[in-house]
Design a binder for these strands. Structure first.
Lengths: 111, 111
DNA sequence: GATCAATATTAGACTACACTAATATTAGCG
DNA sequence: CGCTAATATTAGTGTAGTCTAATATTGATC
């Protein structure tokens, strides 16, 4: 599934924002999302599954709890896609920044 | 409308990719998208309108033609949203890169 | 000013997808 | 073991959003 399709949903984005701050249990995620969006535990669980299946998040078990973490690969896809537009807001990318950007891109291709 | 909702559609993304390479008339866009997605002129025109309304593209008239161009603001929103995840793929942002990144962010807030 | 070319708009149909409600699974604990 | 807590799954429903088909608008040309 395309990365942008996944990020198109506000609940999924909110979950990822939460996970960006560190690992969280399913229950934590449910609590936050339920408070902010007023949807059921089921709905949140379904969104967590979509994030897992799409490779945006990973899970590990801790007893009966499921601990979720960000899986950055798919988000980097989005970052890469934006490359083609960066010239619009970084019109004169100086030598220094170019060097940094180039190194970044090289690293990406290797890994 | 949220930026990610707009980017969730593959036709709209393709149009933006095209506009990233420079201005294009509606007809140009229609030709490319029609070839790749097999949809009607009407559908493409509707998508162009959505991109306009959402602030992702601008138009100017040239006779009976409409010339479309990328409007980078909304794409920068996406870039900004990604900031919170960059630590995952740039774990040790060295002093040089940090300086560049900071300057970039500062510029953004000012403009 | 009739006609053609380029583009936009409108109305209605179809589909994908996120939701709820109900139920299943699994682990820990007395 | 039976019970509870945490989480996942399934089936079914409603709606948002994208499409087609048809039509309208606007500018250029003769």
């Amino acid at each position: 599934m395309d990365a942008f399709d996944i990020l198109g949903d506000p609940v999924r984005r909110r979950i990822l924002e939460l996970l960006a701050t560190g690992e969280h249990s399913s229950g934590d995620v449910v609590a936050v999302v339920q408070r902010e969006f007023g949807i059921t535990q089921s709905a949140v669980s379904q969104q967590l599954r979509i994030l897992r299946d799409a490779g945006f998040a990973s899970v590990r078990a801790d007893g009966t709890r499921r601990i979720y973490a960000v899986e950055p690969g798919r988000l980097r896809e989005v970052d890469d896609w934006l490359d083609r537009f960066r010239a619009f807001w970084l019109p004169r990318l100086d030598a220094l920044a170019t060097e940094v950007a180039r190194g970044k891109r090289k690293r990406r291709r290797q890994e």
